[in-house]
Amino acid sequence: MRPLTNEETKLVLTKLKKYIGQNVRTLLERSDGLYCLRLHNNRVYYVKEEIMKFAVSLPRENLVSLGVCFGKITKGGKFMLRITALDFLHPYCQNKIWVKSSSEDSFLYGNHVYKSGLSRISDNTAKYTGAIIFSSKDIPLGFGVTGKSTPECRLADPMNIICFNQADVGEYIRNEEGLI
C-alpha cells in the first residue's frame, strides 16, 4: 500500500472527472474527515485516514482490501473504474440515464443501454462522457460511457447504443471473485 504518484493521481482524477466533474473536489475535501487515495495490488482505494493508518501495520501480502476500491490501474497504464465506486459516484453525477424497467435486467447482465431501453436522459449530456445509469425507481444500477449525446438520442434508432456498459451492480454476482 502506498500513496499514488502524481501521474497516477492525474489518471484517476481524470477518469472520475468524466463522471462527476468538479465534484471530485468534494470527494477530496470532505467535511466528515480526511480521506485519501491509496494503491495496493494495483488497485486504487479510497480510504478514511484512520482506517489507512490501521492498515499500515499489516504486512502487505496479508492485506486484502481497505476502504472502498475505486478501480484498478491496468498493466497497460489505464485506470478502470470498478462497480464498487458507484456509491461515491451516483450522488455527485452530472449525466444520468434512466432505463425502462423492461430493460433493467438486460443492463444488469452486462449489456449496453440501447435506445429501445432508454426511458430518460439528463439534458446536455455530451457524447463519450461518463454517465450513471438509474432504474426507473431512481436506484443506481451502474455506469457507462455515452455513445450518443442528448440531441442525437432523439433521432437514434431503437437498436442504437446510447450508453456503453462499464460496470453494473450485476457484477456483484457475476464477477464476485474479481471484485476484490
Binding site: L13, R25, L28, E29, L37
Partner: peptide, 8 residues
C-alpha cells in the same frame, strides 16, 4: 489532499 486538489 492539497497536492491532489492541485493536480485536479
Amino acid at each position: 489532499k492539497k497536492r491532489n486538489i492541485d493536480i485536479f
